[in-house]
């Protein structure tokens, strides 16, 4: 079966909440999270810090417009 990640049209979003001291720390945590999860072309789409922690939406672009799209290829055995 094909990789599940290949079936994602474009992006993978992570919605979460992290404890941190300030916006900067939240940003760093967000970036590290993407790295720890080994997600390519990551970005912090949304970040809001308030007092005790931050609401984060992280995005990893798996397939960008103009690149090859694995989900267009026929089903293959791996």
């Amino acid at each position: 079966m094909k990789r599940a990640l290949d079936q994602v049209v474009d992006a993978l979003d992570i919605e979460t909440f992290v404890l941190c001291g300030d916006e900067e720390e939240a940003r760093q945590i967000g970036e590290r999270l993407l790295a720890e999860l080994n997600l390519p072309h990551g970005d912090i789409v949304f970040l809001e810090f308030n007092g005790c922690g931050a609401r984060l939406r992280l995005r990893s672009y798996l397939h960008r417009p103009g690149q090859g799209y694995p989900w267009l290829s026929p089903q293959e055995e791996t």
Binding site: F17, L19, N50, G51, C52
Partner: peptide
């Protein structure tokens, strides 16, 4: 407690 702090903050 953490959840309460979170909702207070928001």
């Amino acid at each position: 407690s953490i959840h309460i702090k979170t909702v207070e903050a928001w």
